[in-house]
Design a protein around this nucleic acid. Sequence first.
DNA 1: TTGGCGATTGGCT
DNA 2: GCCAATCGCCAAT
Length: 212
Amino acid sequence: MRPRILNRAKMPKDTVELARYLIGKLVLRSLPGGVAGGRIVETEAYDVGDLAGHGTSGKTSRNRSLFLDHGHAYVYLAYGTSWMFNVSSETVGVGTGVLIRAIEPTLGIPLMQRNRGSLLMRDLARGPGRLCAALQIDRQLDGIDLCQPGQLWLASGEAAAGGPASGGPASGGPASEIGVSKRIGITRAADSPLRFYLRGSRFVSGPQALNA
DNA sequence: TTGGCGATTGGCT
DNA sequence: GCCAATCGCCAAT
C-alpha cells in the first residue's frame, strides 16, 4: 500500500485523540536527496489548559503555529540545540498540539544517517531532537500544512517496499498495543498520562520504566 | 536590558 | 548518572 497523505477532515481535532491516532502514521520529508521518513512510534499531547503547553499562556511569535487548525507544524528550538516537531491540534485559535518524539526510520535511511552522523538505526530518530536532525526539520518548516504535499507531510500506509519494517514484537501491532505514560523532560504537569508509544518498539525513547 | 530556565543530546565519570 | 552546550523566550528590572 502506497503512503496516503492524511485528510484533515478525517484527522481527530481533540489533542489526546490525535496523539493516539498519530501512532503508526508516517512522517515524510522531501529533501534534495530524496524522500526520508518513517513510522511514528511515540507522541505526547499538550492539551487545553495544560501547564506544560507552550500555547496555554497565550499566542506569541514563537508559538503562533500551535493556534493554527489541526494538522499544521509547530517547530521550535529547545535548549538552543535541538529542534522539536509538533502537530497542531484542535481548531483555529486554540494553542495545543502533539509532540512527535520518535519515529521508526523506514524510508531514505542513508539520508537520515548522513544527517545524523550515525549509522545506528535505533538512534536515527529516537528522541524529538534526533528526529528533527534526521529529517532536517527546523524553523523553515514552522507553520506548514502537514495535510498538503510539500516539504513535510503526514501519511498512512506502509512507508517502504517489503512490508512492515522490523521494529520489535509489537511492530505493526493493533491499536491496543499503544502504551501510555507520563511525559518526558517536563517539570510542570509532570505526572499527567499524556505520552503514547508503540509498545515493544525498540525505536521508542525514554527510560525503560516508562515503556512497559 | 538582563538573567533564569527549558517538551534535549552527547560525551565523560 | 552527571553536566555542559547553546539559543531564545519571557518575566522582571
